[in-house]
Nucleic acid binder design. Sequence first.
DNA 1: TTAGGGTTAG
Length: 635
Amino acid sequence: MPLLPELQKELPALLRSLHQSPTQPLLYSSIFRILTRTQNSLRRGQQLHALLLLHGVCLDPILSARLASMYASSGDLRSSSLLLLNHPDPSSLLFNSLIRGHSLRGIPTDVLSTFHAMLSRCHFPDHFTYPFVLKACADLPSPSTGTAVHSLCLRQGLELDCYVGSSLINMYAKCGDLRSAHRLFDVMPVRDSSSWNALIAGYMMVGAVKVAEHLFDEMPKRNVISWTAMISGYTQNGSADRALKVFDEMRKEGTEVNPNWVTVISVLPACAHSAALDQGESIHEYARSMGFDSHPIVQIALVGMYAKCGSLLKAHHCFDQIPEKNKSVVAWNTMITAYSSHGRGEEAVSSFEKMISSGIHPDAVSFTGLLSGCSHSGLVDQGLKYFDSMSSVYSVEPTHEHYACLVDLLGRAGQLEKAMKIINQMKIDPGPSIWGALLSACRIHRNLELAEIAAKRLFVLEPGNSGNYILLSNMYAEAKNWEKVKKLRSLLREKGMKKSPGCSWSEINGESYSFFTGDTSHQQAAEIYRLLKDLPEKMKIEGYAPDTSYVLHDVSEEEKECNLAAHSEKLAIAFGILNTIPGTTLRVTKNLRICGDCHTAAKFISKIYEREIIVRDVSRFHHFRDGVCSCRDYW
DNA sequence: TTAGGGTTAG
């Protein structure tokens, strides 16, 4: 088939010919084929459809299929469906056009109902039908429909067709049935890159990174999709470093394949995960140079990346660059969540209100962001009001996430009994996130009685989560109940669970440096520890008294103070002070929640060294400046 | 015609 620009060149001549012979079906057919692949052509298509009817041109199978494709590609699925419904004897071609149209719109049930209609009218699906039908099956929650379609392919002898086979491999891989996917892959006479790519993505999805890597190494010819599958696979499996490395490798000169916009949105979450702001900015620059930054999804990914890398200002700037018409509910949600995670509850609320005013309907994610924003900022009444409006005003039914936010909102504010009452009155079974929120709130407000109730549930619901045992054990330690601490710790050992070690990292000049608690392995360890040793004296002058309750072992107070000095977030902050220009902002990320003493210390450090320090912990951001934290100590 | 995808709580 000639390329689209060449085809489009033919369009004026075809339209002129049509003007002279308006009853010629072949002319219409050629024009519709071009319009199907041209943007904003619905109006012209409709005019030609009217002209065709006016001249009584017979809708032969090819012409009606092309007409349906034209409507479907313009998003007018209703007209395509009407063509099929009103046709006395629709051809397989017409069914295929409609199936393809529904597939483009991404609604699997519509694809499958058209497929069902096709079968019930005794039309045989072919190698043009199955790829779309199997794609729809792959998007369904259960693999049973896909298996049934597979048996149809087998009966028609189409299983090993290049397109059908690839689609079957993809369907099984997406459903997580890698055994069936790989079995088919092994028997395919010709394996095109899509079969390899589908298998790579499937193995990545189930976390079999090594197998995916092996396939990637083995495949004869990698294309942009193969590279992107590896990058997004690494990101999804928490290997952000490897995702960034593969992206760099791909961009190196000599690699024939270049990243496209999907590659960019696959690698940006890796920057976000590692809080690698410099690398994120460099990828943003690349996207700009390639013109990908005008893509709505890239724009959203950029907002998310900047927010998670600690630059709320740049996130907001990117959001402002998005044209109003492209500000989808996802774009707004990203901005609401950004404000919320940075402890800017008021801005999260005002973004939500702006979204409503602009005519965008909120979804479940909007409320998760909004409610967690209210919770982090202590906006209890507003949060309660929004929770109540969810189903009554916006028809969004609260899910576990929303209840968890609500319990968190009340719990943080000290209204533990009210939170407990809500849990007891919930319409759905409370899940681990809800009990987890209650347990955290109990820790803040030192309510051991309720904590024991929440923990008891969590031990059943999340038997493998060591965090819950640690939290309760820390609470017993605070209450100096060493007997119960011992009991819980030995229970942890029995189950073979370990406390995840505290780790903090900081990106300096594009390079990431990480520290574990008590880490002495770094080259500059001596300097770091010297700085930290001198710090308490400086801080005490400013009025600092270390809070030793955060070192939860049965040891002396002096020893506790010593342990606090070696917390990973303090090591990373000290390292940052030593290695960056005075006055610049320090950015530190921690894998757990920031410790209370480190939070106090960071406030003093920001004052003593006149630095803004931005700490991202596992649940939110803290901006320390001039002795104050943006969370106003509400966290 | 198939394959890679942005926002989510404690």
